[in-house]
């Protein structure tokens, strides 16, 4: 049994130690907001936070997540939407929406470290793939969220 802290709640799981965090979240803990996209840390659909840092959960063995604070898309808001989520709605970002949990997790972590985002900074920090091509709106939404967070 491995003991995990996910979205502030402690839980134990009975899985092999090499099981990726992604599949523990999705199949064991039933938090399906985190998506499977490539399995090789190339697309970012599975991005979650470990101790506030963005990681690609498809490539993190669960043994490495023991003793950390794991946050998923389901755990970033306290019931009200975050500034990032609101900006995503205001800019009408998602199309199919499948990559957006990962995008929002990556953008949230980026804005926490970089409250005044730059286009170059965004390009460097957020390398997730969106097949629908929502990138121009993602960029606008990150700037909008930053502005809103600065005013709050």
């Amino acid at each position: 049994m491995l003991s995990l802290t996910i979205n502030g709640k402690k839980t134990t799981v009975d899985v092999e130690e090499d099981t990726p965090l992604l599949w523990v979240l999705r199949d064991t803990v039933k938090l399906t907001g985190t998506k499977f996209g490539c399995g090789v840390a190339a697309c970012g659909a599975c991005t979650v936070h470990i101790n506030g840092e963005p990681v690609r959960s498809c490539s993190v063995p669960i043994s490495d997540a023991v003793g950390t604070k794991i946050t998923t898309i389901e755990g970033i808001s306290d019931g009200n939407l975050t500034a990032v989520q609101e900006a995503w709605i205001d800019e009408q970002v998602p199309q199919c929406g499948y990559c957006q949990s990962g995008m929002i997790m990556a953008a949230t972590a980026y804005l926490k470290e970089n409250p005044t985002p730059t286009d170059e900074g965004i390009d460097e920090a957020i390398t997730n793939i969106c097949r629908c091509g929502s990138y121009p709106r993602i960029r606008k939404a990150i700037h909008r969220a930053a502005k809103q967070m600065a005013e709050a």
């Binding site: 907001g33 998506k35 998923t72 389901e74 995503w88 998602p94 949990s101």
Partner: peptide
Amino acid sequence: RIDIPEKVDGSAVYGV
């Protein structure tokens, strides 16, 4: 878009 709110909080259900 009426489907967008559930696509920003992880609650939208896809086939997978």
